[in-house]
């Protein structure tokens, strides 16, 4: 069996997980400042606080596996290996962005990394990953498809249709619900019947896992199991990561639906990066200095990326007419 216990994960891989989490944190903080300076137009949804959930999930994937992302998608595509340069350029609406300025923050995707788009319609990704699943089966490869979604999205009909279809056809799919306790202003405790999202797996006769979304190794372990099952042809699973977003639903959110205390409490006690740094130090894998260097490297990379994006040209207005069709 190809199952690898991630707790026995190599030190190099663990360091890589931390590096990616830090990169996401620094990227997102920088997006927040650019947005505050009114350099980024439109809607921006940040993943600060959710890094372990996303990085642990993507750690189980191969480069040729597929993901479908969401409106809160920067972390997903960074974890899948996208380049922050072209991401910032997209956020700034530049010609050099991944989507040539046509998509913006909500729709950044690098299709060359098998990222099948970032959806601004909540729940729009479920049926798309089903199609990827059929395609994998028909092409007889051992790829896996992973769809990221929130607690809120689990209430769309598309989720239930996709779960059933994935189960009926034993499609190689992993449903990763990043349960950050809120869908916009609505608490999951009020909106999700049945107590959990993973629990809904039971209805479709597929495995459902709940994991601590602030513990990157715990997420990696569970998702690895789900991915391995899918790769072996044993069908889909649902993984629910219990996580939390520190920022508002979008930048500028008034957040009257929760208290500052609640946010502070999470930050102080369950920060995924703090926790993992402590683990790595306890295990003797990284020193305090080495951790500082990881942060410094992330800052350098992000500043270079921001500079590239700021210096990039805007698209020519007429370019708005391109890319509608392959054969216009």
């Amino acid at each position: 069996m190809a199952y690898i216990d991630p707790y026995a994960m190599s030190p190099e891989k663990k360091i890589a997980l931390l590096e990616t989490m830090v990169l996401i944190r620094v990227f997102e903080e920088r997006v927040a400042t650019l947005f505050a300076q009114q350099l980024i137009p439109g809607f921006v949804h940040l993943s600060i606080g959710q890094e372990a959930s996303t990085v642990g999930s993507c750690a189980a994937l191969r480069p040729d596996d597929y993901i479908v992302s969401t409106h809160r998608g920067h972390a997903h595509i960074l974890a899948k290996g996208a380049d922050p340069k072209y991401m910032f350029a997209e956020c700034l609406g530049k010609k050099t962005g991944y989507c040539k300025g046509k998509g913006g923050s909500m729709h950044i995707a690098d299709f060359s990394k098998n990222i099948l788009g970032a959806n601004g319609v909540v729940g729009g990704g479920f049926p798309i990953i089903i199609g990827a699943g059929f395609s994998i089966k028909l092409r007889k490869t051992d790829q896996v498809g992973m769809v990221f979604f929130g607690d809120g999205a689990s209430n769309r009909g598309t989720f239930h249709e996709a779960c059933n279809m994935a189960a009926v056809f034993k499609l190689p799919i992993v449903f990763v619900c990043e349960n950050n306790m809120y869908a916009s202003t609505s608490p999951a405790s009020k909106m999700v019947a049945g107590g959990s999202i993973a629990g809904r797996a039971h209805a479709y006769g597929i495995p459902g896992f709940i994991t601590d979304g602030s513990n990157v190794l715990a997420v990696a372990e569970v998702v690895q199991e789900a991915v391995d099952r899918a790769r072996r042809g044993e069908g889909p699973s649902i993984v629910e990561t219990e996580t939390y977003r520190y920022k508002g639903h979008f930048e500028g959110d008034k957040q009257k639906y929760r208290t500052q205390d609640e946010i502070q409490n999470y930050r102080m006690t369950r920060d995924p990066i703090d926790r993992f740094e402590r683990v790595l130090q306890e295990e003797g894998i990284l020193t305090k200095t080495a951790i500082k260097e990881i942060w410094a490297a992330a800052h350098t990379r992000i500043e270079e990326a921001v500079r590239f994006a700021m210096e990039s040209p805007l698209p020519e207005p007429e370019e708005a007419l391109d890319d509608v069709f392959v054969n216009p």
Binding site: G93, K94, G101, K102, P317
Partner: peptide, 14 residues
């Protein structure tokens, strides 16, 4: 124009 609405303000205005 007969295209989806693009993100970048220069494109959207056009």
């Amino acid at each position: 124009k007969d295209v989806p609405i693009p993100f970048s303000p220069v494109l959207e205005k056009f």
